[in-house]
Write a protein that binds this DNA or RNA. Structure first.
Length: 588
RNA sequence: GGGAUCGUAGCUCAGUUUGGUUAGAGCGCCUGCCUGUCACGCAGGAGGCCGCGGGUUCGAGUCCCGUCGGUCCCGCCA
């Protein structure tokens, strides 16, 4: 039994067709306007707002009670839907042609004055929003974001179900594995000194599901990585995890494109053109200086190494001689950029590891550069021509090792696009980046590490390189990029235990360690592993982009701050000595 | 681990450059008046550990050191 009158309608649904009906609405007091003889209340729930009028001629008790109402009081109001007097309609509200004249008011709960108003246009620190997250989540914008996220889940489930995929849950308590990000560890009470790890992804489980014959799997799953946070990175985040058997890259990519199209049409009513453009990693780096290029604007990079290979400017010629690149891009109309701004760009380049930044200014009369003392005018002209700098344009050049120089150019490219407002709104530039290197060398660990993960298959034609020149081997890996954001990544996997063992060997994981850490997977591969591959999507990032947010925190109900704290419930926090003892743990 | 930036009323900020009387503004809040408002209006009022700790100084919101917290970035993120 409820002790209050339940709602007959939500606060968003009453219209002129309801005029004359007696209704009950429940919700939160959005704002109170007390005119003395009459009190107006905007009542809010997640469906909308409806104005309620309290006046003595309708009901004196309700009117008197309404004087005490304050923001965020929770009430139930019964009254009659009436047409608003001519001239008092509110065109801002969908319910603005009617209001409810109150006959009964029940105050279900009082509320303290909130530390910030419950509305979209707030100018308040994120710290405060996170501390009072339940109030922040009452704001229409946050409700819209979480609703979009909900729609995302529903469309995803329906799509994969329709295509024969089955959703399988995999453990949250699993084995800690080497490689990749730092694990979150969970001490075992029963097994003294042993630990579970929270999954960085369900990678090994989904591959084993393929061995088990569940040839189309998906899961909406939390993943955990104990690394530093960013606007688009949280220690726990959500992936759509997918794996398919008896497929190649094209099958995975096409299946993914189908889902993306349905998500964008279902949530944003946007038609996404498929298939998406594909770029190899090499092309992406050389043209955009990034493995997740933003193609909404140009500023494309051109290689000038051949022009300066014999240059008397030794920084250029020696870079080329050592196998590096001299490359750059043109910035239209920026020949007049100030010395000060150029210094800023130079500082940015240096902070990213560049030795320096060379610029070229093209005017109607001449082409001048910051290295005119060292580089011949013919070379400077050729460079300007190569990068496509015309009269009035600025050219920016970086020299250095291939990946480093191009990456810095990629950062400068983004910086210039932002400064000059070159990034158009409302564009959805999806593209695939393929043919990543399989391995890279880690200076820190003095060994090869997997670019994607250790289960990624090399391209068949590069298999021989594993023995001769492993860094040259390309992977059957692919990333989905949207407007310069990596939103999904996957690969065709190794399904042969010998090849997998060889991979571990290359990664410096010896047979003993491989057996200890991944023995179950190698063992499983001996019992009939099908060829398989898959992909995982970053749900938070995708919903962030879809809702136009700048941080994934705005599409997560309860995110952490950039130092990993939860300001609402104050976690992490100290625990009782008793708990530690049970877990055989001592803090140092 | 490193860099940048911020922390003053419930909120958003000014004041810090150049130390000096009683730390201000807008919004919000409270009280009163007001019967068609919707950023209601009008009048009045309350509200401060200047993040915290230490130092310099006759004197610190202001200078110095440390620390805690927010945001962004580099490293890190198979």
């Amino acid at each position: 039994m409820t002790s209050y009158t339940k709602r007959t309608h939500t606060c968003g649904e009453l219209r002129e067709i309801h005029i004359g009906q007696t209704v009950t609405v429940t919700g939160w007091v959005d704002v109170r306007r007390d005119l003395g003889g009459v009190v107006f209340i905007d009542l809010r729930d997640r469906y909308g707002k409806t104005q309620v009028v309290f006046a003595p001629q309708h009901d004196i008790t309700a009117y008197e009670k309404a004087q005490s109402l304050r923001s965020e009081y929770v009430i139930s109001v019964t009254g009659k839907v009436e047409r608003r007097p001519v001239g008092t309609e509110n065109p801002e509200l969908p319910t603005g042609t009617i209001d409810i004249t109150a006959m009964e008011l029940q105050i279900l709960n009082k509320a303290e004055t909130p530390p910030f108003p419950i509305e979209d246009a707030i100018d308040v620190s994120e710290e405060l929003r996170l501390k009072y997250r339940y109030l922040d989540l009452r704001r229409p914008m946050m409700q819209r974001n979480l609703l979009a996220r909900h729609r995302f889940y529903q469309i995803t489930r329906a799509y994969y179900d329709r295509h024969g995929f089955i959703e399988v849950e995999t453990p949250i308590l699993m084995k800690s594995t080497p490689e990749g990000a730092r694990d979150f560890l969970v001490p075992s009470r029963i097994h003294r000194g042993k630990f579970y790890a929270l999954p960085q992804s369900p990678q090994t489980y989904k591959q084993i599901l393929m061995v088990a014959g569940y040839d189309r799997y998906f899961q909406i799953v939390k993943c955990f990585r104990d690394e530093d946070l960013r606007a688009d990175r949280q220690p726990e985040f959500t992936q759509i995890d997918v794996e398919m058997s008896f497929v190649d890259e094209n099958d995975v990519l096409a299946t993914t494109e189908g889902l993306i199209a349905e998500l964008w049409s279902g949530i944003l009513n946007v038609d996404v053109k498929v298939p998406f453009h594909r770029l190899t990693y090499k092309e992406a780096m050389e043209k955009y200086g990034s493995d997740k290029p933003d193609t909404r604007f140009r500023l494309e990079i051109a290689d000038c190494s051949d022009i300066v290979a014999k240059s008397s400017f030794r920084i250029f010629s020696e870079t080329v001689a050592q196998g590096g690149v001299v490359a750059g891009f043109a910035v239209p109309g920026q020949a007049t950029i100030t010395r000060n701004q150029l210094d800023g760009l130079t500082d940015l380049a240096k902070s990213l590891g560049a030795g320096g930044l060379v610029y070229v200014r093209v005017t109607d009369e001449k082409v001048e550069s910051s290295v005119d003392k060292f580089v011949s005018p013919e070379e400077v002209k050729s460079i300007a021509s190569r990068i496509g700098a015309k009269a009035g344009d600025l050219g920016l050049l970086i020299s250095g090792p291939w990946q480093k120089a191009l990456s810095i150019l990629g950062s400068l490219r983004l910086e210039m696009a932002n400064r000059l407002n070159l990034i158009p709104k409302g564009k959805w530039n999806f593209l695939w980046v393929t043919d990543f290197p399989l391995l890279e060398y880690s200076e820190e660990e003095k060994r090869f590490v997997a670019v994607h993960h250790p289960f990624t298959s090399p391209k068949p034609e590069d298999a021989g390189l594993l023995d001769t020149d492993p860094l040259k081997a390309r992977a059957r890996a692919y990333d989905l990029v949207l407007n310069g954001n990596e939103i999904a990544g996957g690969s065709i996997r190794i399904y042969n235990s010998e090849l997998q063992s060889k991979m571990f060997g290359l990664l410096g994981i010896g047979p003993e360690e491989a057996k200890a850490k991944f023995g179950f997977l190698l063992e499983a591969f001996k019992y009939g592993a099908p060829p398989h591959g898959g992909i995982a999507y970053g749900v938070d990032r995708m919903v962030m982009l879809m809702t136009g947010m700048k941080s994934i925190r705005d599409v997560m109900a309860f995110p952490k701050t950039s130092s990993g704290l939860s300001l609402m419930d104050d976690s992490p926090s100290a625990v009782d000595e008793k708990q530690l003892k049970e877990l055989h743990i001592r803090t140092i």
